[in-house]
Simulated scan of single mutants.
Amino acid sequence: MKSYYSAQRFSDAYEHARNVANFDQRYFQTENGPFEGTVRQVDLGGLHIFTERTNRQLVHRGQVMPGSIVLAWTSSASVAPGSWREETRVPLVGLSRGGSEWILHRPSDTELDGITMSAVEFDRLIDALGVTTTRNENRHIQFMRGGTAFSVLRSGIREMSWHAERFSCADARATIRKQLVDAIFCALGEAEARHRTDVTHLTYNDMVKRCHDLILGNPEFPLTVLDLCTELRVCRSTLQTSFLKVTGQSPLSYLRRMRLCGVRRLLRSTSTVQMTIGDAASRWGFVHLGRFATDYRELFGELPSRTLRPGAEN
């Protein structure tokens, strides 16, 4: 029998990201300590509801599958993704269409709620409402202070686990789906698009994203801060400011943690026969294995030799 509701726990950020349905995404852990994540998901026939919580600071990069849209928002973090230490008092909802990649910088202890659905259905309903500002590929939607529709939607998402035993009944699923779709578009009808754009912050975000691309494109040849400054044609202080504003970390710390995440993904996806720890480390430019092992344990809370690999039990 098909399962319409699932609740999972993860001890690895990469595995967590892979198990959220309808996304092609990767999580890069940037805060020290063992990772813990939970994901609750509901499938309502083309309407997918998810709630996920992560305990560590992450870089969240990916896209929703082609032909789909996603509406997502944080519900229990003191800062908004992509806005390091920037207070968020009114819900900020991200809207993205399939094939359009995003990169978010999520604080620790963040809970993220979201909905994916067919872009065809979304556009048909949004046009019927006369709301045209959401046609852009990626944008933020700012909900009005005191608005009630979004509160109703959030409550509906929170109550999904209460209805788990009802999802085996087709009529119950159809009723719950109809109620949620109504709540989604009531909330969008109440929303107002953000008119003010912080150009400086967008520039900082773009700079960090370009650096992220460069890091992933040159795994065996670790880039230095000077390399990044030269490639982007910016001074060291500008690069430093960009990383501190967006990620809360220095460029050097961010570079190293992205490479450690790369090694961890290699270890998690290959057996000890296919690849040694030393080979995985060298592929991401780590030469001094003692220092590498120390940094790996500091970030992930375990030595690389204790990381669970295919075909082995730790």
Score class of each variant (00 low, 15 high):
187 A>H: 01
108 S>K: 08
231 E>Q: 09
80 A>N: 07
306 R>N: 14
72 A>D: 10
175 T>M: 13
207 M>Y: 07
236 R>K: 05
198 D>Y: 04
213 D>A: 10
264 R>Q: 12
46 G>D: 08
284 W>C: 04
14 Y>V: 11
159 E>R: 12
154 R>T: 06
310 P>A: 09
66 P>F: 05
293 A>P: 06
154 R>N: 08
216 L>V: 02
158 R>K: 15
156 G>F: 00
131 V>K: 03
270 T>E: 08
68 S>A: 09
194 R>G: 06
32 N>E: 03
307 T>A: 12
134 T>C: 14
102 W>M: 12
92 L>V: 13
294 T>W: 04
100 S>A: 11
67 G>S: 09
80 A>W: 07
314 N>K: 06
53 R>G: 13
286 F>V: 14
215 I>V: 09
254 Y>V: 04
121 E>R: 04
192 E>W: 02
193 A>F: 01
159 E>W: 01
88 T>M: 14
223 L>Y: 02
311 G>Q: 06
275 M>V: 03
257 R>L: 12
256 R>W: 01
298 E>K: 11
234 V>G: 01
68 S>W: 10
7 A>H: 11
233 R>D: 09
295 D>W: 01
268 R>H: 01
196 R>T: 04
205 N>D: 04
59 V>D: 10
121 E>T: 09
89 R>F: 12
151 S>A: 15
112 L>W: 11
21 A>H: 08
186 C>H: 01
156 G>D: 15
262 G>I: 13
211 C>W: 04
177 R>W: 03
124 R>N: 00
147 G>D: 12
126 I>Y: 00
232 L>Q: 04
295 D>C: 08
299 L>W: 09
268 R>L: 01
74 T>Q: 15
137 E>F: 02
121 E>H: 04
237 S>N: 03
81 P>Y: 10
90 V>L: 15
275 M>R: 04
12 D>L: 13
291 R>K: 13
71 L>H: 06
100 S>Y: 14
219 P>Y: 15
182 D>H: 04
120 V>Y: 00
262 G>S: 09
306 R>C: 13
168 S>W: 11
78 S>C: 12
119 A>L: 02
312 A>Y: 00
109 D>S: 15
183 A>N: 00
275 M>S: 06
126 I>C: 07
285 G>W: 09
175 T>N: 13
7 A>L: 09
305 S>K: 15
54 T>P: 10
240 Q>Y: 05
304 P>D: 04
271 S>H: 11
98 G>D: 07
94 G>D: 11
269 S>M: 07
31 E>L: 13
17 A>F: 06
159 E>D: 13
309 R>Q: 10
157 I>Q: 01
237 S>W: 03
56 R>E: 09
